[in-house]
Design a protein around this nucleic acid. Structure first.
Length: 547
RNA sequence: GGCGCCGUCGCCAAGUUGGUAAGGCAACGGACUGCAAAUCCGUCAUUCUCCGGUUCAAAUCCGGACGGCGCCUCCA
């Protein structure tokens, strides 16, 4: 039995799908006006695990994750860049998909964009107007909050308090200050679509209502997004959909992920300098290039999705340089700086060697991200174990059916139970680490077992590891491939000369063969200074970049 | 002003429909190794911010204090 924390009920509840043969999930995706940052990555990963685990527990899951591709901010950025808004949105939507893939997120079943669902949106607004909860003013359409009884239920906001707390200039044409736009009439130069109320574009919240209905029906199981979306976005989505289709419709449960805080503060709340830093140096892309997608994913999974997670940054921030000098005040050009093609992943071969000058102007190079470093080490441990397992299993013959060691039998079940409990990925990771530990112990010969039992257990561990990978979206790559890419990435970061390292290894091998251990150790010490650790194994010497 | 979250070992982090503190990192000791790395083993919270209360029993429930954070119209 899966249990989920439902924001609407403010407690953990048993998850009983409306249709157990088909679970339906909707998650709010990003507005694509620039490269996403680590904070945007959290819901991506969190709801990817939700979808994966639901698939493990139910026969069919439809996961819808939208892309908002028309919005004030897109229009503004496009104007700044002298680009068509739709072109800019399409460009960053593509970049976003690259990031999502690098994070190990499976593509959602449907990834609807707002601009291709205008007819559905218009139809929904028409329904709302027909039912008297929407009203038209000069080509704009608003939702009448006071005519919808359930308003405020999701966020727990009493209406009167909201009004008094409102700190935004109130549009006098609205019937109530709380009313929000369903349709905005077009201003000159803005993208627009024809509608019964004149040319215009959708308001911020209506797209999710319309697209969820289109792909999941009037009623579905789960709706997810960041905590900041509870109010007003999700409150308004719910109001729109229930306003059109009645109480009890729309999503049955609401899931909200906590923030990724930046040195213990919300990113948007951190001071101006830090924000600028974030935009230039901490796009998700930079972190992915530096530590790999799986490390970022592992990091995000170490904390249960509802809790805040702190993204720690050590070291002195890059100098703001020109930005603090006279003539400062120009907005960060993150949009313009990341045109298509600038974010190509490191090429295994090409990036190695001393001359790879593809550094990003040194920006952020002196910064360290301890959380990502530890996560990367954990992922490496996983792949090292998998490689050992694969090597052991590559020889020998099938032991047939029979018992396996007890130590290896329980962890996958624990992993599943942890995920059942409101997608507790921290608990699941702990179970995974137990499984990896058992594999290493067995491989080390630390567990007593008859030959056939041992081999059968190793096979079981490999199979269970594959199952765990599928649910967590970790350790899904081929170990040799991942490990070599990982090493290449780290070697490139340290500007190591791979050919020189391999030459040193050959030289040392000759010295060792001649029992010249003094020479051998000299070579070891020499490469150690470069941050390279040599590992002598049965099949020769390999190397890794030290932590 | 209103709504809500959080405070568990040096660090990260499970556990909160009550039943007697997972796991990871770091540290220290050890096995293995010609020396290393990787891997493995052992040690590492009588205690869960503090003070009361309920209970046979509380990190888990209730009240209060202190500390941190978030939302209250376009930010994941």
């Amino acid at each position: 039995m899966i249990r989920v924390h439902d924001t609407l009920q403010r407690r953990k509840v048993d998850f009983l799908p409306i249709d157990p043969s088909h679970v339906r999930l909707y998650a709010c995706g990003p507005t694509v006006y620039g490269l996403i940052h680590i904070g945007n990555a959290r819901p991506l990963v969190a709801f990817d695990v939700v979808a994966r685990h639901l698939r493990a527990r139910f026969p069919k899951v439809t996961y819808v994750r939208n892309v908002t591709d028309v919005d004030d901010k897109i229009i503004q950025r496009a104007a700044e860049a002298g680009e068509e808004p739709q072109a800019l949105a399409a460009r960053f939507a593509a970049e976003y998909r690259k990031d999502a893939e690098a994070l190990g997120c499976l593509p959602p079943d449907v990834e609807p964009r707002v601009t291709t669902h205008i007819p559905e949106i218009v139809a929904l607004i028409e329904t709302l107007c027909a039912r008297g909860v929407g009203y038209v003013v000069d080509g704009d359409v608003y939702f009448a909050v006071e005519r919808f009884a359930g308003y405020g239920e999701l966020s727990g906001q009493p209406l009167d308090q909201l009004e008094s707390g409102s700190r935004v200039e109130v549009d006098e044409r609205k019937q109530s200050p709380l009313d929000f736009a369903l349709w905005k009439s077009a201003k000159p130069g803005e993208p627009s679509w024809p509608s019964p109320w004149g040319a215009g574009r959708p308001g911020w919240h209506i797209e999710c209502s319309a697209m969820a209905e289109r792909y999941l029906g009037v009623e579905f199981d789960l709706h997810g997004g960041g905590v900041d979306l509870i109010f007003p976005h999700h409150e308004n989505e719910r109001a729109q959909s229930q306003g059109a289709h009645g109480a009890g419709t729309f999503s049955r449960h609401w899931l909200h992920n906590g923030f990724v805080n930046f040195n213990d503060k919300k990113i948007a709340k951190s001071d101006e300098r830090m924000q600028r830093l974030l935009k230039r140096a901490f796009t998700l892309r930079v972190l992915l290039d530096r530590h790999g997608g799986e490390a970022v994913r592992f990091f995000l999974l170490t904390t249960q999705y509802r809790h805040p997670i702190n993204f720690e940054v050590l070291g002195s921030p890059p100098q703001d340089g020109a930005a603090v000098g006279p003539g400062s005040g120009s907005p960060p050009q993150d949009g313009a700086a990341v045109g298509p093609g600038s974010g190509s992943p490191p090429q295994d071969g090409a990036a190695v060697g001393p001359g790879s000058g593809a550094e990003r102007g040194g920006e952020g190079d002196e910064l360290r991200f301890p959380g990502l470093e530890e996560a990367e080490r954990q992922v490496e441990y996983g792949y090292l174990t998998m490689r050992r397992l694969g090597e052991a299993l590559a020889v020998g013959k099938d032991p047939g059916a029979g018992p396996v060691l007890e130590e290896a039998a329980g962890w996958l079940g624990e992993l599943g139970e942890a995920l059942d409990d409101d997608f507790n990925t921290a608990g699941a990771l702990a179970a995974l680490q137990q499984g990896l530990g058992v594999a290493n112990r067995l491989l080390d010969g630390k567990l007593a077992a008859p030959k056939d039992v041992k081999r059968r257990t190793l096979m079981r561990l490999a199979a269970d590891l594959a199952a765990a990978s599928g649910e967590l979206g970790l350790l899904c790559a081929d170990p040799a491939t991942w490990l070599s890419a990982h090493r290449a990435r780290r070697a490139a970061a340290r500007k190591l000369d791979v050919a020189a390292i391999e030459a040193a290894i050959s030289e040392r091998a000759a010295a060792r063969a001649a029992k010249d251990f003094a020479r051998s150790d000299a070579v070891r010490d020499q490469v150690k200074l470069l941050g390279v650790e040599l590992m002598d194994g049965a099949s020769g010497t390999t190397w890794r970049v030290a932590d």
